[in-house]
């Protein structure tokens, strides 16, 4: 099976001496919908910048559909469409011209390109704005303009660096639908996002990167299976003075205030035992919700584990 992206031992230290990537390995299969996650400053944009020839790498190997970035740069670049994190088009150019010019840089021109441009601009809701100067677009429209521009040459690999940052919920949903369709038609997609539910919803495989190191590289399913506990927030019918002593269930109980309890239960334990114990302790529950996104909790714990492991290594040296 050919890999859309193959990265081995990639390192990058910026001019200021900051070590942004400390030898990462990353593999994305063809046709995948892949999420690259990580906290601010983790090295996501640096990785993407290197893949897209915008940042020089120090060491390591990157190949795109088998084309080595150093040995066959033109062939590699032809496969990639990029939606960067920051706006990078000429604000004084009209929308349609920006997209058509990008096609020109890939050696494409003529009626076929104009037709494809029209399809993309219509699908992304920009057709009415095609003669508008780019700077007159709203933030969400500017992002969609960058998506149209990235797809004009029909790349096999689409990379999006935080495409939904600052995009309203309705628009985000329509963008998800659009990207799913692009992926369904065979384009490999890699995206970074800080909305974990977005990754959960869209992506089949993920990597978590932190402080320039890969902290996890796995399938979404396997990751979710590793979630072994969740925290429930219980709103109580009547006020309580002290956290109840629950008999017969294995869980952590924290009292937040007189009307609120937080209970952490492990997966597969079942909730009926918990409720029976609560009833036995005389606590009546009014409503219940998950404390936070389970994925977010897992994400934080993975990042924390990675850092701990790293500290261990550091102390050993």
């Amino acid at each position: 099976m050919s890999h859309a992206i193959d990265i081995t031992q990639l390192t990058k230290t910026y001019a200021g001496g900051h070590r942004a990537l400390c030898g990462i390995d990353l593999h994305v299969e063809e046709g995948d919908f892949f999420a690259l996650l990580g906290p601010n400053g983790a090295g996501k944009s640096t990785t993407i910048g290197i893949i897209a020839s915008l940042v020089n790498m120090d060491a390591g190997r990157v190949s795109i559909f088998g084309h080595d970035l150093v040995r066959e740069p033109m062939a590699a670049r032809r496969q990639i469409g990029l939606v960067p994190q920051e706006f990078n088009f000429n604000m004084f150019e009209p929308v349609e011209e920006i997209v058509i010019n990008q096609a020109g840089y890939y050696g494409l021109e003529g009626s076929a390109v104009r037709a494809r441009c029209e399809v993309l601009l219509r699908e992304l809701g920009l057709w009415e704005k095609r003669r508008e100067m780019a700077r007159n677009l709203s933030g969400g429209m500017k992002r969609r303009l960058m998506i149209a521009r990235a797809l004009i040459h029909a790349p096999r690999l689409l990379i999006l660096d935080e495409p939904t940052a600052g995009v309203d919920i309705e628009l985000r949903r329509s963008m998800w639908q659009f990207l799913r369709e692009v992926n369904r038609q065979g384009t490999t997609i890699v995206l970074t996002t800080h909305y974990l539910e977005e990754a959960e919803l869209l992506c089949r495989n993920i990597a978590i990167i932190d402080q320039g190191r890969i902290a996890a590289h796995t399938s979404m399913k396997a990751l979710l299976n590793r979630l072994n506990c969740e925290t429930l927030v219980l709103d109580l019918m009547a006020p309580i003075d002290a956290p109840p002593h629950l008999v017969g269930v294995d869980c952590g109980v924290v009292q937040v205030d007189a009307h609120t309890l937080e209970v952490t239960v492990s997966r597969g334990q079942g909730l009926s035992g918990l409720f029976a114990a609560l009833a036995a302790a005389g606590v009546e529950v009014l409503s219940m919700r998950n404390k936070s996104n389970r994925l977010e909790e897992l994400f934080l714990s993975l990042v924390a584990q990675g850092r701990q492991a790293q500290r261990g290594v550091g102390e050993g040296e």
Partner: peptide
């Protein structure tokens, strides 16, 4: 960057 990412 529009030009730098392209195969030119």
């Amino acid at each position: 960057e529009e030009q730098l990412i392209a195969p030119i």
